[in-house]
């Protein structure tokens, strides 16, 4: 009885306790560093889509925006206010959109003159080597500049109009997803600024 059942159980229990303690110790050391990394990374990515700003507000969640009476498109997750020398100069919108392989998170920077200052994809599950090319600046830089009058449309040839976005070859669905996300961000900022 003891040798067959209790002893093995006790030994396994002991092994688990020792290993869990080791894990807790490593977690204790690494957790603050990981959190700090994530915070720095957030500030750095915000700067990447809005280089002009020197400070970003705390995040404003989509629900909070809705409560304040703004029209919030489905994809919008949160919004940051970008400031320069203490004055509001624009917004960074975090949108989530359905890509080919799953959800994509996109940061879109838009200044108060309704120009897009940058688009960066922060996480995605697109096919490596194909769909993930939408994260390249070659693709995302197409959105930069004044927001066109017409809605963005994805084309599978050279873009000829300022509202046309050239899709990444063999990744039309991923390209569309990014474009939808940017359109959501534009709608959000328009609602915040007022008018269109």
């Amino acid at each position: 009885m003891y040798k067959e059942i209790i002893k093995p159980a006790l030994i396994l229990f002991l092994i688990c306790i020792v290993l869990t303690a080791a894990l807790a110790y490593v977690n204790h050391i690494t957790k603050p560093i990981i959190e700090e990394n994530q915070r720095l990374e957030e500030q750095e990515t915000l700067i990447r889509v809005f280089a002009e700003a020197d400070r970003f507000s705390k995040e404003i969640e989509a629900d909070q925006l809705r409560e304040n009476g703004f029209v919030v498109p489905d994809g919008v997750q949160k919004l940051y206010e970008a400031e320069k020398d203490g004055n509001l100069t624009g917004y960074v919108v975090v949108v989530s959109t359905k890509g080919y392989g799953g959800d994509m998170n996109i940061l879109v920077g838009i200044d108060i003159n309704q120009s897009i200052t940058g688009v960066v994809i922060t996480s995605h599950n697109e096919t490596p080597g194909l769909g993930d090319k939408v994260t390249n600046p070659d693709f995302t830089d197409q959105f930069k500049g004044e927001i066109p009058k017409k809605v963005f449309s994805v084309v599978q040839r050279q873009a000829s109009d300022d509202n046309e976005i050239e899709a990444v070859a063999s990744a039309t669905k991923s390209s569309r997803a990014v474009t939808d996300g940017v359109a959501d961000a534009v709608a959000m900022v328009r609602s915040v600024i007022g008018g269109d």
Partner: peptide, 19 residues
Amino acid sequence: AYITVIATFTTIVQMLLAV
């Protein structure tokens, strides 16, 4: 017992990589 040991090291490696 072995799986527990392996899982522990895997979790440690993941934490270290994140740092």
